[in-house]
Every structure is written in structure tokens, then in C-alpha cells.
Amino acid sequence: MSTTAAEMETSESSQAEITPTLRVSSLRAEFRTDSGTAIAVDGMSYDVHAGETLAIVGESGSGKSVTSLAIMGLIPNPPGRVTAGEVWFENHDLLKLSEREMQKIRGNKVSMIFQEPMTSLNPVLSIERQMVEGIIEHLDLSPHAARQHALDMLKRVHIPDPESRLSEFPHQLSGGMLQRIMIAMALSCNPMVLLADEPTTALDVTIQAQILNIMCDLRDEFDTAIVLITHDMGVVAEMADRVIIMYAGRKVEEGTVTNIFQNPQHPYTRGLLGALPKLGFAGPVGSQTLNEIPGIVPALTDLPAGCRFAARCSYATEQCVAQYPPFEEKTTAHWAACWESANLPEGNQE
């Protein structure tokens, strides 16, 4: 990868370009495993701006979750380690901060919500305790004011009867309710960046719709930059302004949501779109075959030299196997790492 999209974006755009809220550049994270060193994230770069939603899409093991854990300094060491890269936020490289300094930023200016709300909350502490502690710590409010703030936040995420919810414990609440509380907690210190890791994957679709709505509203109200990590192309289409597709630890495509969905430049993106059953399919059962991506993701401990998708790609050439393609701008504000993108057929899927 010669130039990252993030760098090109800023160098090419006008001086009026606002500095991004969060800039990740050339991030690399490794895990030591029994079968060797796994490169979970390899040269990941992105910018995210205030009020914008950037979606990072990928399947299991693509490195999408590890990226945000690395940003938050939450990769367990050992076995994991961030071996290269920078994470710029408010003129600091977060990776160089001490644990103490990170604690001030975590949950305050940069917040994170996880897929399983149940496991991210402490089961033996009441909701009030967990919410208010963070608020007191980061916002320097009196206990009374902090409680009031917590109540306000719960109302913002449409939690009925917030007073009594405060005194309850996580196991007394449903998954949807807990995820709303997590969002309220994450946003209670008015963060500039919200990293949301599969925030709705564990939820039912009607609850998911509510949560996505709340996230959109709050983003617009507080001008938060959202990094939405997901595997669900439907959620991406619904929420994102820009999209990054990751595969085996690397960014393979980046662009606006319209570009990614209507004119994907990487065969993997096209494969993903074609693999989805689409609502509104009316033909007889069996009349439409979903696109399959043959094979499996390469082991992160034993990555090929060339394009990591080549073994599963129907357009792969000798060059693809031998050499990793550069991540380059294919059309305006639309990057992909593919040697063959010019030769892909018309249309947006396989």
C-alpha cells in the first residue's frame, strides 16, 4: 500500500477541509497464537469526521473489531499487540498515551458500545451506579447533578420510566433495553467519537430499528462521529455516509455508501452484495441462486503474498496471486485494492 486513502483524501482536497475528529493511520495489530503470529489488522487507515457515520464492514476475522479495540487501547496484551500505526485524536497519538491518560479519554471523548450489552455491564452493580460513576469521573459533576444527567440520557434513548430503571440491575432488563442503556452511557459524556461494534446484531429486528433510529438522532443532535462496525449490509445502507470493506485484516475498498452499493470496485464487495437474500424476491423458490464465495478466509497466521482474496476470486490472475494490489482511487473518492477492477463486468454484484 503506497498511499493510504486517508492521506490522499486530505492532500487532494482543498484547504477548507476540516481536520478529521479521529484519524487512524497504518494501524497493525498482531496476536500470538499457538500456530504462529496472526496479523489481525494490517495497515488500516481511516478518517472520520464530526457528524459522520463511517461503516466498517467485514466478516468474522476481517479485523474490523480488533481495529476499534486497538484504538481504545483494549487489546489484551498478551497475546495481542499493536505493532505499528498511529491514532490521532485531538492532537494526541492515542497509542502513545499512558493507561492513565487513556482512561480519561475512554468513555469520555471516545466511547465504545459492544455487541453484547449483557456482558459489557457489571452484573452486580445497579444501572445507576454504573452510569453515574462514569459521569462523575469524566464530567466532574456532583452526585446529584450526575444522577440528573443520567436520567436525561435515559430519556433521550426512549427508556420508559427511567427513574425505576436506574435502580435495577442488568439481569432485570431486556437486551434491547440494555443496549439503549449502553448507548445512553456511551453518549452521556458527549463523546466526539462513538465506536459501535455490532451494536444491533444481538437484537431483534424491530428493536434494531429503534436503536438505529436513536443512534441517528443522537448523532445529528450532538454531531458525534460514529464508526459503525457491522457485517450487515442492510444496516450499512441504512446508516452509513461512507463505507470501508475489510478482508483478512486489510481494507479492500472504501467509498461513499452510494458508490459502494452501486458501483463496487472489489470482487469481494460484489460477492457480499450478491450473497444477500433480498427482501421482495418474488420468483418461485429455487429460481434464484444466491452468490456463493467459494473457499474460506485465509488463516491470519499464514497469509498469502498476493491479494488475500485471490484464492476465492473468480477474476484472479497470476498477478493477483503474486503481488498485493495497491489501494488506489478508482473513481472520485472511491478506492479499492484490486488489480482487475477495470475488468469487472457491469452491475453491482456477481
Partner: peptide, 19 residues
């Protein structure tokens, strides 16, 4: 959620509350 950004702003029936 429909995987097509063009349909994004369509009107939804949002159910309130939990199951």
C-alpha cells in the same frame, strides 16, 4: 434494513417498546 442506500429514507413503522 434494506441493503440499498437509495431506499433509506422510506417511511418505517417503528414499534415502540419491547416484546
Amino acid at each position: 434494513p434494506v441493503p440499498d442506500p437509495a431506499t433509506r429514507r422510506k417511511k418505517r413503522i417503528l414499534l415502540s417498546g419491547d416484546v
